[in-house]
Amino acid sequence: MDMSATTIIFIIAAFSLGLVVIMQRNNIPPKLRRGLAIASIAFIAFAFFLIVYSLATMGS
Rank of each mutant, 00 (worst) to 15 (best):
M1Q: 07
D2S: 05
M3K: 14
S4P: 00
S4Y: 14
S4A: 07
A5W: 13
T6F: 05
T7M: 07
T7E: 05
I8H: 06
I8K: 08
I9G: 02
I9V: 05
F10D: 10
I12R: 05
A13V: 13
A13M: 13
A13K: 02
S16M: 02
S16L: 12
S16K: 09
L17I: 10
G18F: 07
G18V: 11
L19S: 09
L19W: 13
V20Y: 11
V20T: 14
V21Y: 08
V21S: 04
I22D: 09
M23P: 00
M23I: 15
Q24N: 09
N26F: 13
N27G: 02
P29H: 09
P30I: 00
K31V: 09
R33L: 01
R33Q: 11
R33N: 05
R33I: 03
G35Y: 13
G35W: 07
L36C: 06
A37E: 13
A37W: 14
I38H: 06
I38A: 09
I38D: 05
A39N: 00
S40Y: 11
S40P: 01
I41A: 14
A42T: 15
A42W: 15
I44W: 10
I44L: 10
I44Y: 03
I44F: 10
A45G: 04
F46Q: 04
A47P: 03
L50N: 06
L50I: 09
I51P: 04
V52R: 02
Y53G: 02
L55T: 09
L55Y: 14
A56Y: 14
A56E: 12
T57V: 09
G59I: 01
G59N: 07
G59L: 14
S60E: 08
